[in-house]
């Protein structure tokens, strides 16, 4: 049960944190159309996160009360659990602290310039297109339904980020330098997507989860094809950062949560 919850949270946290990062571009895009594009994509991610958090809240509430109080290391969330109240979808994103978040490090990396934002999304979109294609056959009917729905949106995101990789790489000298720098810097965060967490291994055995490690060859092939068209080189660095899926994050996540959670922490239970 706990693995099932952690697995769902891992998916939800990835979608929320990347969605939040992309939302930070709102009002800052280089041209109006791309500003709108990023916020549209952000909205898709946050919408997917919402469905996943609803499911995660439901999974948490199914766990007996005495065990439920020991799942998380977040004081505010535990206070709510100890009060005997059932969790709602919003409690999980707003009341958990950074050490209870399970998103991959890639998603929390800063927006940087346009090239960094594009490279980060490209790595993620290619991965999640493959991932949701498999997850839609999950034995968990709710996860399967969320994957089926999300897949249509991710297909669109993947097209958008792939085109931008090509446009920047095969563009001007300046744009090529910038996208290659972004790729070189964020490459080290791409590997974690394929490193199976305990929750992922447990869910794979039950036919609920996806074998992320097995997606690597397809991901490599897709990335290689786009890089070729974009006249970009694949970084030679093989060493990869990891930890996010084990709740060990870079310093960036704390800042993201400070902004994201501020209202609910300052005014608990506040509604618009």
């Amino acid at each position: 049960m706990l693995d099932h919850l952690f697995y769902t949270l891992q998916l939800a946290d990835n979608a929320l944190i990347l969605g939040h990062r992309l939302g930070e571009w709102c009002g800052h895009g280089p041209v109006l159309e791309q500003d709108i594009a990023l916020t549209n994509i952000s909205l898709d991610h946050i919408g997917q996160a919402r469905s996943l958090y609803q499911h995660a809240a439901h999974l948490t509430n199914e766990i007996p009360q005495e065990q439920r109080a020991k799942i998380f290391q977040s004081v505010t969330l535990n206070n709510k659990i100890n009060s005997g109240e059932l969790l709602q979808e919003d409690d999980l994103p707003y009341l958990r602290d950074a050490w209870d978040f399970r998103n991959a490090l890639l998603t929390e990396q800063p927006n940087g310039d346009w090239a960094y934002t594009v490279a980060r999304s490209f790595f993620y979109d290619v991965f999640y297109f493959l991932y949701y294609t498999k997850l839609k056959d999950s034995k968990d009917a709710q996860l399967a339904a969320i994957a089926e729905k999300s897949l249509k949106e991710v297909a669109y995101h993947q097209r958008w980020s792939s085109e931008w990789m090509i446009r920047l790489g095969d563009g001007t000298e300046e744009s090529k330098t910038r996208i290659q720098n972004a790729v070189n810097d964020y490459w080290q965060y791409s590997g974690e997507l394929f490193v199976m967490s305990d929750a992922e291994n447990a869910m794979l055995k039950k036919g609920i989860g996806v074998d992320a490690a097995a997606l690597k060859p397809e991901w490599d092939a897709k990335v290689e094809a786009i890089f070729k068209e974009a006249t970009l080189s694949i970084p030679e660095e093989k060493w990869m950062q990891k930890g996010g899926k084990q709740c060990r994050h870079s310093e960036h996540l704390g800042f993201i949560l400070a902004e994201l959670q501020y209202m609910q922490r300052a005014y608990p239970g506040m509604e618009w």
Partner: peptide, 8 residues
């Protein structure tokens, strides 16, 4: 059935 996941 929702149209887009995040459609407000």
């Amino acid at each position: 059935t929702p149209t887009y996941s995040g459609c407000p």
